[in-house]
Design a protein around this nucleic acid. Structure first.
Length: 332
DNA sequence: AAATCATACAACCGCAATGCT
DNA sequence: CAGCATTGCGGTTGTATGATT
């Protein structure tokens, strides 16, 4: 009946009573000695489980239930490019976010991107091999320079009237890209903001009880130092990702048999890059949630989800003179 | 209205790093 | 210094919920 200790370990969702016990423990002893919680018979959870619960749910000032804001998404994308899958490290730059949050955000984002760009290799698996290798070329290494990526400059007036809208989009997109790249994030955010000294646990615990995410995002989030792009000009994170993929030679896998090396110079000559990416508001867009609901309760959802068809729609038609099209794009 | 699908989130597991005796 | 315990991290899985068909 009472087989505790070894086999009576409780798993699964936490009850509020358990949370209270755990909180009491932390109030008394600080966030440590997790295994003693079980050895004292307070909870039938492993120390590991207790620690995880504290870190991910009970710790003060967590933004539980808040979607990632645009700024946060931007930070994650940039830092992931810089650090790889070092979620804990990335999380230190995002007050109120845990490594688990960042990890979950990233993986769901990767799934979304995989659906948008089905031909690209599954990121989650490939990440393993790529670890610590720059996930995309360009800005990752030292955000101040982008030596590997020559930004094609366009005169937005004459490149082809068939996609004038895309043209205007692309130029502003490129500006935004540059803005994004100019921001040296790691220097702008203090990683120690998430350092929960046990001395302040008591204070924070009391604060946390009246500290839902909606109230505190602006206060906690230290990105006021980051030059904030105009909201209507900002790149969606997906755009950035897509653009990042363009910088990667793998992107050309999209074009079927065409080898990326074959494309070589053409990749710079042909204006395919920027035209794929458009400001959120003014261009046809793929599904995108701003996650801005924490800030202002507004969640954008642009209903036209990108499809391979629409994806190619904004290409200048002469692009396809050089490219053998995928088997049957229209089927998809 | 029901079934299916996609997404977000919570939690577990294994391994590595670190600290303690 | 070795061995053990604890803590931390990243990958993965399970589940609840919402959206779509």
């Amino acid at each position: 009946m009472e087989r505790k200790r070894d086999e009576g370990i409780r798993k699964g969702p936490w009850k509020t009573e358990e949370d209270e016990v755990l909180l009491n423990h932390v109030k008394k002893y600080g966030p440590r000695d997790w295994s003693s919680i079980r050895s004292k018979g307070l909870l039938q959870r492993t120390g590991k489980s207790c620690r995880l619960r504290w870190v991910n749910k009970l710790r003060p000032n967590l933004k539980n239930g808040c979607k990632f804001s645009l700024e946060e998404e931007r930070v994650v994308i940039e830092l992931q490019a810089q650090f790889g899958n070092k979620w804990a490290k990335i999380a230190t730059y995002l007050p109120g976010r845990t490594d688990n949050d960042v990890k979950n955000f990233w993986s769901s984002r990767q799934k979304r991107l995989t659906r948008i760009l089905p031909t690209s290799s599954p990121p989650s698996k490939s990440q393993k091999n790529k670890k610590e290798v720059q996930p995309y070329h360009g800005c990752s290494q030292g955000s101040n320079s982008c030596p590997a990526f020559e930004v094609p400059k366009f005169s937005s007036s004459s490149e082809g009237e068939s996609s004038s809208r895309a043209q205007s989009c692309s130029s502003s997109c490129m500006e935004n890209l540059e803005m994004i790249r100019m921001v040296p994030l790691p220097e702008l955010v203090n990683p120690k903001l998430l350092n929960f000294d046990t001395n302040i646990i008591h204070h924070e615990l009391s604060l946390a009880e009246k500290n839902p995410c909606s109230e505190s995002q602006e206060q906690i989030f230290p990105f006021s130092q980051i030059p904030d792009p105009q909201p209507d000009l900002i790149f969606s994170p997906e755009s950035q990702e897509l653009l990042a993929r363009l910088e990667d030679h793998n992107i050309f896998d999209m074009f079927g048999q065409l080898d990326s090396s074959e494309l070589g110079d053409a990749a710079q000559v042909l204006p395919i890059g920027p035209q794929l990416f458009e400001p959120v508001e003014s261009c046809p867009s793929y599904e995108y949630h701003t996650g801005g609901d924490c800030r202002n309760g507004v969640e954008e959802k642009i209903d036209s989800t990108i499809t391979p068809d629409s994806f190619f729609d904004d290409f200048p038609t002469d692009v396809f003179d050089h490219i053998e099209p995928p088997p049957s794009p229209s089927d998809r």
